[in-house]
Amino acid sequence: MPFGYVSPEQEMRDKADFARKGIARGRSVVVLQYENGILFVAPNASRALHKISEIYDRIGFAAVGKYNEFEALRLGGIRYADINGYTYDRSDVTARGLANLYAQSLGMVFTESRKPYEVEIVVAEVGDAPEDDQIYRLTFDGSVADEHGFVAMGGVADAVAGRLKERFSEGMTLTEALDAALGALTEPGGERPPVSQLEVAVLDRTREHRKFQRLTGPRLERLIATGSPAETPPEGSTSPPDVSGALNGSPGDSAATAPEGDIDDGSGG
């Protein structure tokens, strides 16, 4: 047997272990359905290096692992969506098509490259009704899973998914879904991350044309304060903070997305 020979089975196992260790070093990301769409929540102290982004009108992207690797995948997905939407029709761009594209790319890198991508991604598409929503989870080797309800990836994903399973229920409001996500991402007895270290976005089926919207600043603070039991006012006190502008915005709030028709390239909040 040649010196330095490694069986294909052992090589694949080594690659898989390498990729899993790299993904586990990061913080978990949670994606879950709520009554009006799909919610993305990720602990992220960076304001420039996004884990959550828009791909197309109804499609969002979330990732964990090495930033340069999943950023290359995200940009490739945007190019694919733009070309197909322009050449054929915008309705021809689907999360399923993007998931197939990513699966082929990840699978090819895993089998042909000496170093696999240390990434795990979710591609989600919001439909006209909750039963039409699509959430696809892709792992480093190109495997695809069609998820329903919620998904947690990266970090201690199994523990986060277990906590989220206890809190999740169908038809939750946005406030309830955000509270469930933050509760799942927080270790028992630990403190929830501050708003400044959270990246939160939604695919909101009630919005016109472009469904993706980032939740930041005062709007996110109001949603968290309303959903947190610690912030619930005692009986007989004033009513809880008004969150009617959490999604639609108010005159003093900055816009949550880029101007109509532009693609969110992740370069801004």
Rank of each mutant, 00 (worst) to 15 (best):
P234Q: 08
R205H: 09
L178Q: 00
L220N: 11
R214H: 07
G252P: 09
F212W: 01
T206W: 07
T216L: 15
P188A: 00
D264V: 10
A230P: 00
E191C: 06
D204M: 10
L198N: 02
K211S: 02
P194I: 08
D264C: 04
D262L: 15
G217S: 14
T232G: 06
G261L: 07
L220G: 06
L185C: 04
D253H: 13
S228T: 14
L203V: 04
A177K: 00
D265P: 05
F212Y: 04
E199Q: 15
A256M: 06
A255E: 05
P240R: 02
P229W: 05
P234K: 13
P218C: 03
D242F: 11
D204P: 11
A246G: 05
P240N: 01
S239Y: 13
L247I: 13
G217H: 12
A225S: 13
P218S: 09
S244Q: 14
E260N: 13
T238M: 12
L215Q: 06
A255G: 06
S228C: 10
G190E: 02
G190R: 05
A256E: 09
L215H: 08
T186M: 05
A184S: 08
T186C: 07
L247A: 05
G217Y: 04
P240A: 00
A255S: 10
A230T: 12
V200G: 02
E187M: 12
E231F: 13
E260V: 11
R210E: 10
D242L: 11
E191Y: 04
L223S: 05
A181D: 04
G245K: 06
A177M: 00
I263G: 06
S239D: 15
P218R: 12
T226N: 09
E208H: 10
E208Q: 13
T186D: 04
E221G: 12
A181R: 08
S254M: 09
G236M: 07
R205I: 08
D179N: 12
P234I: 09
R205M: 09
E231Q: 14
T186Q: 05
S244F: 09
S239R: 14
D265E: 08
G236Q: 08
D253K: 08
V243D: 01
G183Y: 10
G236P: 07
Q197I: 08
G189S: 01
G236H: 08
R214P: 06
L223Q: 07
T186I: 10
L203K: 04
G249Y: 03
P240V: 04
V195L: 14
I263E: 11
S237F: 11
A180N: 04
E231D: 14
V195E: 14
F212V: 01
P234G: 08
P233Q: 10
D265V: 11
L247Y: 03
A201G: 03
S196P: 09
A181Q: 07
E199I: 14
A181I: 07
S254E: 15
P241C: 04
D204H: 12
G252A: 12
R192E: 06
S239C: 10
D262H: 14
H209R: 10
P233C: 09
T206H: 09
R219V: 05
